[in-house]
Simulated assay, not measured.
Amino acid sequence: MEIWNILLLFAVGLIAGVINTLAGGGSLLTLPALIFLGLPPNVANATNRIGVFFNGLLSWKGYQSKGVKTEAYDIWLGVTSFIGAILGSYIAVDIKGDTFNKILAAVIVMIVAYMVFGKRVNSGEGIRTNRKSRIIGLVTFFFIGIYGGFIQAGVGYLIIASLSFIHHFSIIKINMIKSLTVLIYTLSALGVFIYSGIINWELGLALAAGNGAGGWLTSRWSTKVNEKYIRYFVMFTAIAFAIKLFFS
């Protein structure tokens, strides 16, 4: 593998790690990069998960180091998404490129519509953690796991929207849960892709180095950033990614 390919994937992974930790959608940068280097869509989708895993691990550890605590319910959200991701990953093994892009574009359009017209990400006031909301959350994360195992790109927006709507968590709490959830369900996705033999380890590890670095650094300083600026960042990246999909 050429050194330029390694440097390119590290740089793209670093940017994607920052984006994934603050909002979501970093895979909309890393997937095209992997395809540009000659990987088929399903192989690029599988290879991308190595970086996603390390980004989730290091960003979650970064939040922990800054005092954003993980509770039992947060782990159970990850467990239900883990189960869903098994199903989604098996679907992704044989996905065709055209179908992949169309589904991704449709999901991003819906997410952008929510971010523009829906209720803004809650600041942590009026948090709801009753039995009903927890059951709804667990069921929702099972389906998020299916999507995450299937495509991954844009899953951060789904998690942000779901936790904000269901529980009214703060954006920092949501991003910690997002990192943990992605970490947990990516384990099952990687298992399916490794079993299917469709991961390019050289390119995946180069990408993972950048993803992990971006996640670790961003998770540590993002706890000091005013939440309204993170909301603006989420809105901007969602709109930018949607435009990219339609005109690419």
Rank of each mutant, 00 (worst) to 15 (best):
A242P: 09
I184L: 15
V12F: 11
E202G: 15
E125Y: 12
V107I: 15
S162A: 15
P32D: 06
G56N: 06
G124E: 08
S196V: 01
G210E: 08
L104N: 00
A153L: 02
M176F: 05
A33Q: 04
G148V: 01
G78P: 08
Y114W: 14
M115N: 14
G212H: 12
G149E: 04
L37E: 05
L183H: 03
T237L: 14
L190N: 03
L57I: 11
G137W: 02
K69C: 03
W221R: 13
S219K: 05
L205R: 06
G215V: 13
V139S: 10
G154P: 05
A208P: 02
V18T: 13
D98E: 15
S179E: 05
E71H: 13
L245S: 07
F117A: 04
E125L: 12
V121M: 06
D94N: 15
I151F: 10
L245I: 14
A238Q: 08
N48C: 08
G204Q: 07
V182P: 01
V225N: 11
F36S: 11
A208K: 02
L57A: 09
I239R: 03
G26D: 06
I6M: 13
T237C: 14
N42F: 12
F141K: 01
A213C: 15
A46P: 01
L8W: 08
R131F: 13
L31V: 09
G38F: 03
R131T: 14
F53K: 01
V18F: 15
E202K: 13
I75Q: 01
N200Q: 10
I146F: 00
K224F: 14
N45S: 04
N101G: 08
I108K: 03
V112I: 09
T181E: 03
A153R: 01
Y157N: 02
K96C: 01
A72N: 10
Y229Q: 12
I75P: 00
A208W: 02
L8K: 07
V18W: 11
F165S: 11
I83Q: 03
W4N: 15
N101T: 12
V12S: 04
A238E: 07
N122V: 06
R134T: 04
I184A: 04
I144L: 04
F143K: 07
A85T: 04
F141G: 00
M115R: 05
A106G: 15
H167Y: 12
F247D: 04
A113E: 07
M110V: 14
S170P: 06
S162H: 06
I95C: 03
A113H: 09
I199P: 02
Y90P: 00
T129R: 14
L180Y: 06
S248N: 15
S248Q: 15
I177E: 00
A213R: 11
F142V: 05
L245P: 08
I172K: 12
G84Y: 01
D74Q: 08
H168R: 15
I230H: 09
L39D: 04
G97I: 02
E202Y: 14
E2G: 15
I172P: 09
T237Y: 12
I108F: 10
G62L: 09
V121T: 12
L14S: 07
V225F: 11
L34W: 05
